[in-house]
Nucleic acid binder design. Structure first.
Lengths: 334, 334
DNA sequence: CTGTTAGCGCTTTCAA
DNA sequence: TTGAAAGCGCTAACAG
């Protein structure tokens, strides 16, 4: 705003704007004394370069966009934390866009970003359906790194977690604990994330000689009340002795149902849930968790994006897979 | 990026860039037919105006900044959710900056934003100390709305919650429940938020004829292990029968201490905590909570900022106070 | 209602 | 090592 500009700075120093501009960006073709003079006055006068002008000329925005389903999801807020940390380290600014799982909105965000508002995009997609060509169009015009919820059919740089393995291990954990009828609360089934988790569950059952029963698999209705009803029906009708929730949000209605039905966890039914909630250990009575390294994912994804922006990323488009942590809890709470 | 620009669009339509520019922004001085033609071709060619050029000329960025202590704090992520919703409604972009409670960093962010990167700022401050003049400088140059953690000594638009009243009521709740020795886990004591909460606690004790005992007041050490140790010492040495935690983060170490000391909640000690955690009702065995309307605060604060930006805010600099919700839980969990 | 023109504040040739 | 000059893509006077 009411700030000083390059021209005024140059005038005050008896230099050309070109020289001042170069000095400010520490160009090697400027003498040390000149640089020093410029830097000093700039600091003294609180000079801040106008980003619009700089961007218009140089096509660099010093800004990246983060597109995610929800900020209020623990996983994503932790990822943003990691992204912001790396961005700040590079002196970059971070724009946030929430899709609320709406892929039309997601595509609208991306299209608008093509106007040159950002240097690159970090995205955790809302859906993998019907968008391939759109995504490809974008990727051709702007560096994009996918994280967590990636689009399998697109050749791009991706950072994910070991969805298959972690769910496989989680299922084995329940089987080892004696569970014979393990229910699965399924979500994100239009995404590879969700598919892989489910595949891990299926494979673990199979490898342990348990025949999968589709009646034990319940789909997320994206609605708390409905989920509550679905889970209640499941617990009453099928009486599972173990349950896996493939997203954090599904653990809540499950707990309420148990409370209502007077089911004791873990005596009557054991649970293991995906969760990035720090207070999860306090959930009653014993919640085993699969925790994704959200913060690290944010950092890794952002790190790769900056490597691309600095032309220092020479790998082929690859998927970096980070390990989730499974925490097994057996206590009966307080 | 490789996008089409105004000039090309104008050329293709046999119009001047000025006309096209006006048509695109729905100016009243353009004929309907021309507008229609322009809009159609623009859509067809996927034209996206270059924000840098537009900003450079018009001094409008269509961007606001949100400066907060931590994204991973439930309260703030919910506030961001509200802010983003309003911003999108106005076709604005949202930049996120985390201060991690560091007020130097906070000031550095604000200074950099003066370069014209944003049209306005929403901030929840890291500290109220030693920054008054700096804040005043910023406010003179850019519209700023403070929310939740506001700087009392600055004349600006603010949105807060009823910190005093809610803590007062929370304390009364414990007293009504029979508590005689109510401890207070204090945080944010360099902020009016923290001070008001503490004042509410003190006033409630006083109004109920209880003499405040400073030994029952413990200060947040900003460190999980240390807080654990402090709280443990408090519970062993002073044996309080009730406790109020003035921020969500302090409830966790408290729970761990109770578990370690084999203290039964609420039989041995009752608790009421500030918390914006959705799963709080599942915390064992009975956590009464003070929940701030974070989402609504984000919406309100952003709404006011947009009114200011659209020159539709004519109130004097006022503080809008939103009501928190106190949820009293008495059950012994599952 | 439409066009002409100037210029926002930078960066980047090109020339010195 | 520095300067002069052009121009990024748009908007805003001003003129017609």
């Amino acid at each position: 705003m009411g700030n000083i500009n390059l021209k005024e700075l140059a005038l005050a120093l008896n230099l050309s704007t070109a020289t001042v501009s170069r000095a400010l960006r520490d160009s090697h073709e400027i003498s040390p004394e000149t640089k020093k003079k410029v830097l000093e006055l700039a600091k003294q006068l609180n000079y801040e370069p106008n980003p619009a002008a700089s961007n218009l000329r140089s096509h660099k925005t010093k800004t990246i966009a983060v597109i995610i389903p929800e900020v209020t999801n623990n996983f994503f807020s932790q990822a943003i934390n990691g992204i912001e940390e790396i961005a700040r380290r590079h002196d970059y600014h971070v724009l946030i866009y929430q899709t609320h799982e709406n892929s039309d909105l997601e595509m609208a965000f991306m299209r608008r970003l093509l106007s040159g508002r950002v240097d690159g995009i970090l995205i955790s997609v809302a859906s993998e359906t019907n968008n391939d060509q759109n995504f490809k169009d974008i990727i051709n015009q702007l560096p994009v790194v996918f994280f967590d919820r990636v689009n399998e059919d697109i050749d791009a740089v991706k950072v994910t977690t070991d969805d298959y393995e972690s769910t496989y291990n989680a299922t084995c954990h329940l089987i080892e604990g004696g569970c014979k009828k393990i229910a699965y609360l399924m979500a994100l089934n239009n995404l590879s994330t969700g598919k892989k988790r489910f595949a891990g569950y299926c494979a673990a059952l199979n490898d342990n000689g348990i025949i999968k029963n589709d009646a034990l698999v319940v789909n997320d209705a994206n609605n708390e009340d409905e989920n509550y009803a679905l889970i209640k029906k499941l617990l009453i009708d099928k009486k599972p002795d173990g349950i896996i929730t493939s997203i954090e949000n599904l653990a809540l209605p499950f707990y309420y149902v148990c409370k209502d039905l007077n089911l004791n966890i873990p005596r009557d039914i054991k649970i293991i849930s995906f969760s990035n909630l720090k207070t999860a250990p306090l959930l009653n009575p014993s919640l085993s968790t699969i925790t994704q390294p959200a913060f690290e994912m944010g950092k890794e994804a952002a790190g790769i994006l900056f490597k691309i922006l600095n032309k220092k990323y020479f790998e082929p488009n690859e998927t970096l897979v980070l390990k989730s942590t499974i925490i097994k809890r057996e206590s009966t709470g307080f």
